[in-house]
């Protein structure tokens, strides 16, 4: 465990908590893509099936359980408790455009042709595109609440820190996981445009709005 990895995990956890607290305090999930949140719940579910088969560390187990719980609570807030406040009209990204290619690719390009391994691969590919419904929603409405942009910032920061973690691991342990690295780099690229807007607008006290 290196410093990039731990900071990456903290950043990921912070992003998830920021989103949950925002929904809870405002009693509203306006501007949040429920579809992205469903995809993240699916990502954690398919990736963390190894909770039942492999023990890595207490840290690993606890974090996986927290991520799973938070993901399901978020989905419940959007589609259950605060359903009336959700922006389903603007959350119009077609999930099959992501799920079909991701499923196909996970069968074609994986480490082992076993159920657990294919599901793990599916989760890695799916995570790399899971934020797209959220970014699509922002581009459609042309704006995002500042707190939503903080959520996206920490989610993007987590991805960037994981890349630093992989560079570190490659040099110190001679370890790299090609599937994770390629998908991780693709995923981080999706955040670049957003990072630019975050730095030039949100950090200067302006609301994120698109021209």
């Amino acid at each position: 465990m290196n410093v990039f990895r731990i900071l990456g995990d903290i950043s990921h956890l912070l992003a998830i908590i920021i989103l949950l607290v925002k929904i809870w305090k405002s009693k509203s999930c306006a501007g949040i893509s429920g579809k992205s949140q469903i995809l993240f719940a699916l990502v954690f579910t398919t990736r963390y099936l190894d909770l039942f088969t492999t023990f890595i560390s207490i840290y690993n187990t606890v974090m996986k359980v927290i991520f799973l719980l938070c993901a399901y609570i978020t989905v419940y807030m959007i589609y259950g408790k605060f359903r009336k406040t959700s922006d389903s009209e603007n959350d119009s990204f077609r999930l099959e455009f992501l799920l079909v290619p991701v499923t196909g690719l996970s069968f074609l390009e994986n480490h082992n042709f076993t159920a657990l391994e294919i599901l793990w691969t599916f989760s890695i590919y799916l995570e790399s595109v899971a934020i797209l419904p959220q970014l699509f929603m922002i581009s459609k409405t042309g704006e995002a609440e500042t707190i939503t942009t903080h959520y996206l910032f920490f989610l993007g920061l987590y991805r960037a820190l994981y890349i630093a973690n992989w560079i570190w691991r490659y040099h110190t342990e001679n370890f790299y996981d090609q599937i994770a690295v390629v998908s991780g780099v693709v995923q981080t690229i999706f955040y670049c445009d957003f990072f630019y807007l975050y730095v030039t607008k949100v950090l200067k006290g302006k609301k994120l709005s698109l021209p």
Binding site: D50, T54, I56, S57, H111, W120, N165, F175, Y176, D177
Partner: peptide, 10 residues
Amino acid sequence: HALHVPHDEL
């Protein structure tokens, strides 16, 4: 080379 180890990352 791409050595496959258990997935220890989150």
